[in-house]
């Protein structure tokens, strides 16, 4: 079970200027089907302040751990207010580094969007990302991270520019993640 939220430090686009503008609730179940192959199913409820309605998704995915990387495919189905599919393929790997227990996450993902309300069905966007995991305590890790999201097709570019708040098609996103695991 996961609860996730987004706090925008300078939201000026919408009239309400709600800085806490999204809260997601995820309930999922993972099971190792056989050696290296894991299946996951779940549902997500998106509480969206700036959208006309909230969103509900069900998802199912498979991931397989190969010696050098893990590959996964997940399908998300919006079943309430914005019916459509989001299919995502991802490849990622965690490289152990030889100092201070650090590790490096590298990942690539590509998504296919089939959205009924938008009349869109095509490959949409890809993302490459990297994160350096630095353990600072037995159960606390700090991870500087950076990612680049980009359109995969011309249709994807138009769709991303139309829906993005900044009107751009490519987005570089960086920051830091502080995580505690118990």
């Amino acid at each position: 079970m996961n609860i996730w939220g987004n706090f925008d430090t300078g939201e000026e686009l919408f009239s309400g200027h709600e800085r806490w503008n999204e809260t997601d609730f995820t309930l999922s179940y993972s099971h190792e089907l056989c050696a290296g192959l894991t299946g996951t199913v779940g549902i997500i409820y998106y509480s969206l302040v700036n959208a006309p309605d909230d969103s509900h998704e069900a998802f199912a995915g498979l991931s397989y751990a190969l010696p050098w990387f893990t590959i996964g495919v997940t399908g998300y189905r919006e079943f309430h207010n914005y019916p459509g599919w989001w299919m995502q393929i991802e490849i990622f790997h965690n490289f152990k580094l030889p100092c201070y227990g650090m590790s490096l996450d590298l990942g690539f993902s590509a998504g296919y969007l089939d959205s009924n309300p938008q009349g869109y069905a095509d490959w949409h966007s890809g993302q490459v990302s990297a994160a350096l995991n630095i353990p600072v305590h037995k159960c606390i890790t700090i991870s500087p991270k950076i990612g680049l999201a980009f359109p995969l097709t011309r249709n994807g570019s138009d769709n991303i520019k139309f829906n993005s708040w900044d009107g751009e098609e490519n987005h570089v996103c960086g920051g830091i993640r502080i995580a505690a695991s118990f």
Binding site: N6, F7, D8, T9, G10, E11, E12, L13, E22, W86, G111, L113, H124, S125, G126, Q127, K145, G147, A149, F150, P151, G156, I160, N163, S164, W165, D166, E168, H171, V172, C173, G174, G175, I176, R177, I178, A179, A180
Partner: peptide, 21 residues
């Protein structure tokens, strides 16, 4: 966990503009 990021990008779409999240 807590992430402090330069932008909120969801499935390729930026859902923040000129503001950290």
């Amino acid at each position: 966990s807590m992430e402090i990021l330069s932008q909120y990008v969801f499935r390729g779409v930026a859902l923040s503009a000129d503001s950290a999240v």
